[in-house]
Design a protein around this nucleic acid. Structure first.
Lengths: 248, 248
DNA sequence: TTTTGTGGTTGACTTGGATCAACGTCAACA
DNA sequence: TGTTGACGTTGATCCAAGTCAACCACAAAA
């Protein structure tokens, strides 16, 4: 299942608004008229192709633009002085990446391509300028940032209060949902990241991730073959992240 | 050390921009001229006093405004169906709270006052409108949201990759820094939250937090008397969160 | 003044996930 | 066609933090 360079929008209600980045979150046409929608093309400063394992940007680099992922996927991570790595997120086709840089004008994390990928470059100055003129764009941009915050709170919940299997179940459901929103089958997908990267994201070691996958497989919740995942019992996974045995 | 209703700005470089919310992050006068600065008063839709333990807002309530904390402090938390609580952040005087609501028009977490507090209400529609007119305000608002994202990534790093003592050290240094920025002594402060709330935030049980405090006390890093904290060895704490013993 | 309740500390023990180690699979490449 | 190296799985052991329980301090209520 190779991801195509240009993914057609299939999810209900989505409309292509930006001819350059056909899935761009920012372009979802909320409250924009046709003239405004056409102006959105101005946003895109160009495109960049990033090879697998290569950085889109690195922590400490000056911040100039955010990026809309046209094709492929990325991870963002933060490094501690002693070498420990924390993956702070996975971004897939159609999503926005690079919001961390705005506060300090410097990127605060590394963004690494998980596969050969392509992004639309959105110069931040341009975005601020246009969103002063187009109310719908401004609102949409704020929503994207806010959604990022809410998503991070979800991860904090996961890291702070859940056990290993719950974390993995939540992760799989989240991935499934995001694939679905992009028009892929909800039940079957390829993970583009390694067990170690999943582990880092979930605050677990790779062995623990591997074992949890095996247990899910044994229990008939998912069929796992390396990076190929097929969800067999969605409700079973959901149940796992709610009431689990020993909670009083 | 009771926090006064109106905290004077003492940190270098800060200037009161908004007569209503004298410490409001949004009002830091970056790139705003005097006329614009005066218009910021329009932002404030009113004030609200919140008693200790009372909610400023609750998850699921419709989102209409963000809030600038004039006095006091809050925690934000998310609840799981089974009752588990995850504290996602602590907000103190001068900080902005409520950004989580923008993405869905619904608040996604609870904001509870840790002490009797007062906030300025900033109707979100008004903020969007004004920030379309005032470039400096727009940029400042984006910075506040982005900073929130970066801060959350820091917490994810903490929850995903650090051991108990490192987490508490990072927490104390962070608190110290935030108190300092508000003109208080960097070395001595009162925590307004319980051990259980700290634990929830750090992904630890209250007993673990308590023990870590005791160990810090034994090692001469801090003087702890219930909620009164005095940092004795700042560098010692910093060292703790970097190279700790058994890392290869 | 006693009672009650909330929050904090400390000790003994238990355990989930980390660590250490061996081995399997597969793709890239000499 | 080996050889190499990255990635994944599985087992045995260990330990940091969770759990359970006792107790203290102190403030508010009776």
């Amino acid at each position: 299942m190779q991801m195509k360079a240009t993914v057609p929008i299939t999810a209900a209600g989505l409309k292509t608004a930006c001819s350059q980045c056909n899935l761009l979150e920012l372009c979802l046409p909320f409250g924009m008229n046709d003239t405004e929608l056409n102006r959105l093309d101005e946003l895109v400063g160009g495109r960049r192709k990033i090879k697998r394992q290569q950085p889109l940007y690195r922590a400490g680099e000056p911040f100039e633009a955010i990026y809309a992922i046209r094709a492929g996927s990325f991870k963002t991570d933060v490094l501690l002085e002693d070498g420990r790595e924390q993956v702070t997120g996975f971004q897939m086709t159609g999503e926005i990446i690079g919001l961390d840089g705005i506060s300090t004008e410097l990127h605060s994390c590394n963004a690494i391509a998980l596969e050969d990928s392509e992004v639309c470059v959105i110069p931040y100055a341009k975005l601020e300028e246009l969103s002063r003129e187009i109310e719908g764009l401004q609102h949409q941009f704020h929503k994207v940032m806010s959604r990022e915050i809410v998503r991070d709170h979800g991860v904090m919940m996961l890291l702070g209060s859940m056990r290993a299997e719950e974390r993995l179940a939540a992760f799989l459901l989240n991935m499934s949902q995001r694939f679905t929103a992009r028009g892929f089958s909800p039940a079957e997908f390829h993970l583009r990241m390694t067990r170690e990267e999943i582990g880092s994201y979930l605050g677990l070691k790779l062995e623990t991730v591997s074992r949890a996958f095996s247990r899910f497989q044994d229990e008939g919740l998912v069929a796992v073959q390396q990076k190929h995942i097929r969800i067999l019992d969605n409700d079973g996974l959901k149940k796992l992240i709610q009431h689990q045995p020993g909670m009083r």
